[in-house]
């Protein structure tokens, strides 16, 4: 590296002297004020409250919770009139059985879902503008809110179609862990058979001896939704 001549040495000394006089201190308060001045309005409002940022976040959370709680109260009160509606009053005393609880005992309103798959499509013949299908067999897997209606079912069905709608009837047997339900079902289909609704009274056996299950099944494609009641008595007479 070549040595500096006297002129260069003086220039270097002068540059260092200027650099050493520069003010490099930071005014933190001024920077903070500048930053606050650029915040959105809501942030300015929080600064007016002079609440630290974590506390502000807690307040936002608290307000949100208050609103959610208020909405819950609204929902509860909207349901209340139905709960408070006068119930039918039999004219004489009667021992009321337990309310439906889905606990697998006694009287119950049951709901559930399931899927079914075709075991045999049966035989189909054309009759006029429709078709007649006989010997259709399907199996189903049902999961209900009551274990007594949860199990696997076998459906035997006959179907008459009339254009895009059809009437269908047959039998259904639902086998569960502690017993079985069996009986006749009938109903209708539409949308070329892609949607259907069948109902029926099934009679219990095994642990369900003496009970009946009213079974309403709506299906779309291979998915089904069911609803019904379980009660300690026979189905309605013919």
């Amino acid at each position: 590296m070549p040595e500096l001549d006297p002129f260069e040495i003086r220039v270097a000394a002068a540059v260092h002297a200027i650099a050493d006089r520069a003010d490099t201190r930071v005014d933190a308060a001024a920077v903070a004020r500048e930053s606050v001045g650029q915040r959105p309005a809501w942030s300015v409002a929080w600064s007016w409250l002079q609440v630290p940022l974590p506390a502000a976040m807690l307040l936002v959370l608290a307000l949100t919770l208050a609103l959610v709680a208020g909405m819950a109260v609204v929902g509860a009160l909207r349901d209340r009139p139905a709960l408070l509606a006068p119930l039918p009053s039999p004219t004489a005393e009667v021992s009321v059985a337990p309310s439906p609880t889905g606990d697998g005992t006694g009287i119950a309103h049951v709901t559930g879902t399931g899927t079914f798959s075709i075991v045999s499509p049966g035989t189909t013949v054309e009759v006029g503008d429709g078709t007649q299908t006989r010997g259709y067999v399907a199996t189903s897997a049902v999961v209900a809110n009551d274990p007594r209606a949860t199990g696997t079912g076998t459906l035997h069905l006959d179907i008459d179609t009339h254009g895009r709608v059809g009437s269908e009837w047959g039998t259904y047997r639902l086998v569960t862990a502690d017993g079985a339900w069996e009986g006749a079902l009938a109903g209708g289909s539409w949308s070329d058979g892609n949607a259907s609704e069948v109902t029926g009274y099934l009679v219990g056996s095994g642990d369900y001896e003496g009970y009946s299950l009213y079974f309403d099944v709506r299906s779309s494609g291979f998915a089904m939704e069911l609803e019904g009641i379980i009660f300690p008595g026979p189905p309605p007479g013919p």
Binding site: L59, L67, V73
Partner: peptide
């Protein structure tokens, strides 16, 4: 200022309650 903030929260909750009690029944 904390009391003011708490009051705001309480007012919000009270407003929700008032809305609930004045909502039309089904």
């Amino acid at each position: 200022r904390w009391i003011l903030v708490l009051a705001l929260v309480s007012l919000a909750a009270a407003a929700c309650g008032a809305a609930a009690t004045t909502s039309p029944a089904p």
